[in-house]
Design a protein around this nucleic acid. Structure first.
Lengths: 225, 225
DNA sequence: ATGAAAATGTCAGCTACTTTACAATGGGGA
DNA sequence: TCCCCATTGTAAAGTAGCTGACATTTTCAT
């Protein structure tokens, strides 16, 4: 991988706006790249040394396997998101892995230790990073709060609203979302069974609220969702 | 409040181990104290300027009120925990507040801006703080994962196990937990109705797994929980 | 001590889900 | 082009846990 390209990849991320070119290059030295396509499994927590990953392109889900062998979605990572040892502590026994949801996934990574060194030299980065992690925590907290106290229908609506806000293409009150999730994925995210999710989605389609297919989801009127 | 006492209060917290005495004193200047007793409500998010709080003594719960006026437990804060604007971003519209669970709650606080300044001057503090926030995130994530995928009984068991690990007094396989929660509180935490929680607790008592009363909870054999 | 309020105990519906089971569809690789 | 398998659709039966409705017990302030 050419140094210059690596530099560009990291530089692009708003977390690194506070860093000078030379500092970014310092990180780049150990930067590695991975490519994947839909369905590919990307291990990260068990890898040799603790790393932080940056998703440059595509979408992935972080899943873990429970005692009964059931896949459990922990997080959906989108373009520009960081993932991995965000806590700055390696955690060997989590048995989590990532799975590509789209074709053309590209991930770059750097060593946790290098990142720490850089933070020590650059307190501003530390501050930015802390805010970043904090924001992520807030998002997770909100998501889960909904999961506990609301019923499946509300959860689905909330999920669609957030998804639309995050990645939808707005055209007045109409929104188009590029759909890289199966109904089974959505069910996992909103914490319900696949059948219930299917039923709710079809119900919404009957009411002309959305139009669902495997490629995209059209929301007819975002304000009515 | 005497300067020396303030200093002692902060110094005691492991987050501040990396700071020198003079640095802690810098924070102390603006430190404020609050005292509360059981049932008291402590507002913090809406207060004048963003602050970070440190619970020095007692236990409190962070709750928010949803559209229907239902109280929702967001977090249980224990002695030594930080809370408030942990994300380093003020968030006016969260309408959260804290409620004292025990008598003799004492809280100290400092200004977010002062803390940020200190972090800029002391990268090590930034690193420690980031790890701290990250750890909190991991805890929240795990808790919520359980809430979604497990049934009420499992959730109660997990909660009791964690509570015991966190604050229980072990004596071989027997554990004593000082009980500052009502069954309604526990129900909220494990995301179930009060009646179900009561039923499950009584069921466990019938099976001699625990002995519950308002003052304390005895776990007969931690390994069987 | 004594009444009121808070906390706990219990039970009978009821409902939103899950599970199981299978059918229909459609997209992509040989 | 056609077949296969992942995805989606649908329905019946079963159930965990919620709601509401009380009874009982404990706590605490006066």
């Amino acid at each position: 991988m050419y140094e210059e390209l690596k530099y560009w990849y990291l530089r692009d991320h708003k977390l690194f706006w506070t860093l000078s070119m030379s500092q970014i290059k310092q990180l780049c030295i150990i930067t590695g790249f991975k490519k994947a396509k839909k369905g590919d499994i990307i291990y990260f927590s068990s890898s040799d040394v603790p790393r932080i990953f940056l998703l440059k392109k595509g979408n992935i889900k972080i899943v873990s396997i429970d005692e009964n062998g059931n896949e459990m979605i922990k997080d959906i990572i989108q373009k520009g998101d960081l993932f991995g040892e965000l806590t700055l502590e390696s955690d060997k026994n989590s048995n989590e892995y990532a799975k590509a949801l789209t074709d053309e996934v590209s991930i770059c990574s750097f060593l946790l230790s290098d990142f720490e060194d850089l933070m020590l030299k650059n307190p501003n980065l530390a501050l930015t990073y802390t805010k970043f992690v904090g924001l992520k925590m807030k998002r997770i907290k909100n998501n889960y709060s909904n999961l506990i106290s609301k019923d499946a229908k509300t959860r689905l609506h909330t999920f669609l609203r957030e998804w639309a806000e995050r990645e939808g293409h707005f055209n007045g009150n109409k929104v188009t979302i590029e759909n890289y999730l199966t109904q089974a994925d959505i069910a996992q995210i909103i914490g319900t069974s696949r059948q219930t999710a299917t039923q709710l989605l079809n119900e919404m389609e009957d009411k002309q609220l959305i139009y669902y297919n495997r490629k995209e989801i059209l929301i007819d009127d975002f304000s009515k969702l």
